[in-house]
Write a protein that binds this DNA or RNA. Structure first.
Length: 299
DNA sequence: TACCAGGTAAAAA
DNA sequence: TTTTTACATGGT
């Protein structure tokens, strides 16, 4: 056994396309990167896993973890976590079958074949991302998050990992505000981090909940409203039927591609996406990715 | 300079 | 109960 493994993932899958789509949401020039580099927390250790695609049909990834013990339990977990991060088990074919007859979605899905949503390595990371993106523009949120990572993150082989809940829990509101978070958001994140450390909150439990339960659990946390809960569900948990319809970007985009071009209300966006159940979240994700990579705003 | 931007909870009415 | 308001940063 080596500390690198070949893993078959559900085809169709295009890692490079998925990476480009993920990168297109950040206000920085897209890289040429074809590898996924993923900082993972295994127990108290922070280590880097890498994945690159080595086959299309069947779709295969080579997953490596230099710091893992060859054949060890840590290697096994690194592979599992990496698979989860690339939505390896997601079967896109039923989604493609469903969109095949749709005047807009057929073209969108056809141009993005093999695109899967990439998930952050930890749900806590996703919670931080979601809270930073509340209300302010994505660009402003990105700047805040960059400072957050500079101040509180840890670098592993050139990739900056988010702080663990334990690492963040020892900070103060003032320290968090230094990266541009509002006092409110700083308190939300500290409250979450401390809740996790003290065992009152367990984000990993969300994996075992259905959509309704997860929505309820997340919205019971202070600072986590419906938008944040659904945003975390679709991006962090890979829930393919969940759409944060309150989201300004989604309302604009659904209006643009499935409506008359103007921004919809949340209710209109929900109605417009209803025909795509149980793939409403994936449909919205494909529209977003299409718009960023190939649409009028594409570079 | 304003105003808006992938919201939310708390205050005020 | 429902409706305002404060909050942070960054682009236009």
């Amino acid at each position: 056994m080596r500390n690198s493994m070949l893993i078959e993932v559900r085809a169709p899958f295009d890692l490079g396309l998925s990476l480009r789509a993920a990168a297109a949401f950040a206000p920085v020039p897209p890289g040429e990167e074809e590898r996924l580099r993923l900082p993972l927390r295994l127990g108290e250790r922070l280590l880097l896993a890498e994945a690159r695609q080595v086959g299309r049909r069947p779709a295969r990834l080579e997953i490596s973890c230099p710091a893992c013990r060859p054949g060890g339990r840590d290697m096994k977990e690194a592979v599992e976590r990496t698979c989860r991060a690339v939505s390896a088990g997601l079967d896109l074919r039923p989604f493609y079958r469903m969109t095949a007859g749709h005047p807009v979605m057929a073209r969108v899905a056809g141009r993005l074949r093999g695109l899967k949503p990439l998930r952050p390595p930890e749900l806590f990371d996703m919670a931080v991302i979601a809270v930073t993106e509340q209300q302010i523009s994505l660009h402003a949120a990105y700047r805040v998050r960059t400072r957050f990572l500079q101040l509180f993150g840890t670098e592993v082989d050139g990739v900056t990992a988010f702080p663990s809940p334990r690492e963040l829990a020892g900070r103060t509101v003032e320290e968090l505000r230094a990266c541009g978070l509002s006092g409110r958001k700083a308190r939300y994140l500290l409250e979450l981090a401390r809740g996790i450390v003290e065992g009152r909150v367990d984000l990993d439990e969300l994996e075992n909940m259905d959509d309704r339960q997860a929505r309820e659990y997340l919205t019971s946390l202070r600072g986590f409203g419906l938008w944040t809960a659904e945003y975390i569900m679709v991006r962090g948990l890979g829930r393919t039927d969940v759409v944060p319809a309150d989201d300004l970007g989604i309302r604009s985009l659904v209006g643009l591609y499935l409506g008359d071009g103007s921004r919809m209300t949340a209710e209109e966006a929900r109605r417009a996406l209803a025909p795509f159940a149980p793939w409403r979240g994936l449909a919205a994700f494909y529209l977003l990715a299409y718009h960023r990579l190939l649409g009028p705003d594409a570079p």
